[in-house]
Amino acid sequence: MTEVKAVEIKAKLIPIYIMGKKYEVPETLTIMKAIEYAGYQYIRGCGCRGGVCGACSTVYRKPGSYKIMSGLACQTVVEPEMYLTQIPFYPAIRSTYTFEKLTGKPEEVFDLYHELFRCVACNACSKVCPMDVEVMDYIAALKRGDIKAAAEISFDCIQCGLCASRCMGELPQYHIAQLARRINGRYLTPQAEHLKTMVANIEAGRYQESLTGLKVMDINMLKETYTAREMEPATGGEDWIPKENIGL
């Protein structure tokens, strides 16, 4: 057995610039942790810390390049001489609509977002997107009325708003893309038939009995039932079917 020694590992400190001020931070940190290490406290501009909520979009530059780089503060590791600021929010107006009243026509999108037609294809949006979404391409698709293509191209969008911050045409791209995805999901993709059957079953009281049973169950019995519930085994495979096939 090898002896385990407690070794103090000291991460190398590197200089970064946060909003123009220089800080020495451990090189292993993400931008978010580096900002906290430097003494800032997050009140806004930080959400899931897992790269999906889009609250911590950050723009930065590196010496020797004119390029504007971007990333999510919670996902991007600091680099020496990084010159950064976090853009926790960028104003972009989301048009209001009653979704049920839409029918999926391109003109409905045009009406809610006329500014679509101010895009000049400068591509600043795609270049700044931390999720590598081809923003310019989905705007191009929407201008020609192809909502489906726009929904598909924008699928990885996390609504961080960096595209809107860089837009020459003053578009709120990510809100428009969200509308496109909603319309696509509701009106343009085939609806699952079994979902309709399921909803009808529920409305007809399929789960009423078991639900009432749970409601009156005492706490210990409830815990026992929960622990004993049937779960799909890790090795289940595709043809696994639950014994109590209540969900289908």
């Binding site: 026509k105 003109e107 045009f110 009406d111 006329h114 500014e115 037609f117 101010r118 201008k143 020609r144 009325g145």
Partner: peptide, 23 residues
């Protein structure tokens, strides 16, 4: 003001009118 174009007009206008007009 692009936002003031009525729903009815938007439904009829070809995209090329809006792109060129806004430009």
């Amino acid at each position: 003001n692009p936002s003031e174009i009525s729903k009815e007009d938007t439904a009829k206008l070809p995209q090329v009118a809006m792109v060129s007009g806004f430009r």
